[in-house]
Design a binder for these strands. Sequence first.
RNA 1: GGGCGAUUAGCUCAGUUGGUUAGAGCGUCUCUCUUACACAGAGAAGGUCGGAGGUUCGAGCCCUCCAUCGCCCACCA
Length: 885
Amino acid sequence: MPKAYDPSQTEGPLYQFWLDGGYFKPKIDPDKEPFTIIMPPPNVTGELHLGHALTATLEDCLIRWHRMRGDPTLWLPGLDHAGIATQNVVEKEVAREGLSRHDLGREKFVERVWQWVHKYRSVISHQQARLGASCDWDRELFTMDDGPQRAVRTTFVKLYDEGLIYKGKRIINWCPRCQTALSDLEVDHREQPAHLWYVRYPLLDDAGHTTDEYIVIATTRPETIVADVAVAVNPSLDRWRKIVGRRALLPIIERPIPIVADEAVDPEFGTGALKITPGHDPADFEIGERHGLSTIVAVAPDGTMNAEAGPYEGRERFECRRVIVADLERRGLLEKTEEYHHSIGHCDRCDTIVEPIASEQWFMKMESLARPAIEAVVDGRIQIVPRRFNRVYLNWMENIRDWCISRQLWWGHRIPVWYCRGCGQPTAAVEDPAKCRQCGSPELEQDTDVLDTWFSSALWPHSTLGWPGETADRRYFYPTSVIETGYDIIFFWVARMIMMGLYNMTDVPFRHVYLHGLIRDERGRKMTKSLGNVVDPLVVAEKYGTDALRFALATGGAPGNDFRLSDDKLEGGRNFANKLWNLSRFVITNLEGHEGQVAFPDTGQRSQMCLEDRWIMSRLQRLVTEVDKLLSSFQIGAAGQRLHEFLWSEYADWYVEMAKVRLKAGDSSPLPVLASVLDTSLRLLHPFMPFVTEAVWQNLRQHIAWAEEEALIIASWPRPQPAWPDREAEASAQVVMEVVRAIRNIRADRGVDPGRYVEAYVAADGAGALLDASRPILESLARVRPLHLVTDAASAPRRDVASAVLSEAQVILPLANLIDLEAERARLTKQLQEAEAEVGRVGGKLANEAFRAKAPAAVVAKEEERLTAARSRRDGLKQRLTELN
RNA sequence: GGGCGAUUAGCUCAGUUGGUUAGAGCGUCUCUCUUACACAGAGAAGGUCGGAGGUUCGAGCCCUCCAUCGCCCACCA
């Protein structure tokens, strides 16, 4: 084994080894409960970012853990056609050839998108594989594949037939750049500086002649004046009540419009009068419906003003705003202008300011679909991790509004509705219909719109398992176990999957929702292309190793919290992989020097085992229990940290060093324990760092007699053994380690040459026997020789010594010329102060009758022990100080 | 306008039923190439857990109020 771990040499071949072994495919067993994760399908836009790497890491962690536990484990990968996003990307590509999609035409353009898809489909899968994702590639699906297409159509027709999908004219969000309607969720509202213009609308008399009266109206969007159909006032305002029923003259356009009364007008805002533009404002649209007003749309799909704008026709909407303000001012109709801040909607794909437009679109009625989805979370059939997102989810679901599902795009699932050229009636059907359902005419034309890309995503957990077909996968794997994704798409995706899963399958799509946070850069900024701080996970994996990246991602934070990824964290992951590699190299090198395979340590003969062996086995068993518990409660990061701590601070820093003492003496007895602890640790760590653990284990397995499986990826997950932990061994080892630490501390403090052996006295009454048994360890790890073990500190030298007092023992080092009396006194005094503080604190607590009466007995007993130990230390220190003086 | 989160060591963050002296990684200081690892080892320094009250035998954790930062949702022009 080379001295440093080289991921680039190991990862590729190991992934191939797993693939060849078929380990990623679930073994269906009707008697076992499966574990299933449907992977959030990345967009086929060709950008794999750190969010995908995080998803791949966390899901792979859970998947590998369950696979090792022996559960039939399915991780189903997929890809999303990502409607607008992909269409935009391909449009840009086409633009480089100087063409627009309109130059190509719908059919040719869609063909181009398919070419893109074919190219990137494999690129993305390959990228996932590089991250170690152990998913079942044979089941990989694309949202535009035949199966999911059929699921989309089937669902649409079912909803349509039940009246849950309808076509209607409403105010929708229109992106003039993408030239399509958007759902409310696809609009990003941002507070921005703006103006509030106060415009005079002249009043007409009964005969329709202008008067010198006028009504002042505040607006942020003067360009929409051309589409005004009324003025509404709040009837509670005296100054306006009397003009209700009269007419005003629309400025510039000079169209007479009625003045109506409506409670929806806020009397406190502006002048308490509102211009009504039903074609461009949702509130106005409702007011318009209430008063039977007509709707005028004055903005064309491309964001320019249309013929309704009269003199402004053809002007871009914001240019029109400037011109119209100037015109109003010139005509003396602009009373004043105020600075104003309000939030403006932007297209979340291209950041263009969204135009609210009254438009005929397809909508999904959500309320009845939301109700069972709310129940599923309330009654716990679905559990969200972290739990606080329950409220976020429920709040949104309880106020849900109809979903605009039609998009004026070319790329996506085309709406399965055909219109009859004869009678005009629509026919919705799963299969392309041959004739009109109404009149039987064969002259049909399919709706030109496509569906919101999230429509197919909402069906993903069941459409990927074969629905609407009756498949074995669907029966066995649905409902799935966990959905894991970022909290930013809880509404877009998670909520809709729950609704549609319950609707189509009458059962929840998954039992647990694990929401991860957003990854930010070192300075806490969101990673965006415009900031140029986007990190390519494959570049990172190349530089630090996939395991390093995975470990950094998995242990960097807590569920639902954002976290910053830094080079420091990646280096930490790399260092840990290297530590593990070298640790294993040491163990394996020693095993190689041993004849044949070692047997599993005979823990039945525990009393025959030496202290350090018992200690590490006990600690290992605790580890097994804790890691399993942490993973069961989705505390993946905490489990990873716990493994790091055990392997580095307990196994490597202490046990291996202790084991060396025997090994150097030619005693091979620690080998079984060394090997089995490493084996178990590798199993536990494998879900986090699959490559380095498998690489090491392939080596280790040749030397151990109990390795049954040919690969770590399918090796059995460690189970806690009831015989452990061994509390006595843990406490005893603690004493040994404390003595070693105390001696090292004195040596470092007094500047003793690290290599030099010095004489030492250790006084211990009760712990004498165990210290004697660990004498070689004490001597070697603390570099003391000769080591005098005495029962009473009084029998150790008193002059020219440095000492330390522990609860169970006192350490005395005769250091003659290295002794600095003042420093020694200061050191002991400081320790004494600490001990006395503790005696005071704990003593005070125990003196409190209320504490004794109300605290659990175990807590009280612990405090008693603490007090005894602190007193013993205090008395010892007092004595040492007296002797020093 | 509602809601959520964050505020813990110089930095980045853990800390799920309230119970020892609040932890980790990085960084800092002092030593060491001790034959697994300098991507390392040994030792050390460093925190009134944002502020103020309250509940409790006991609060980083529960309650109330406040402050700063961030996010989400929302048709006040």
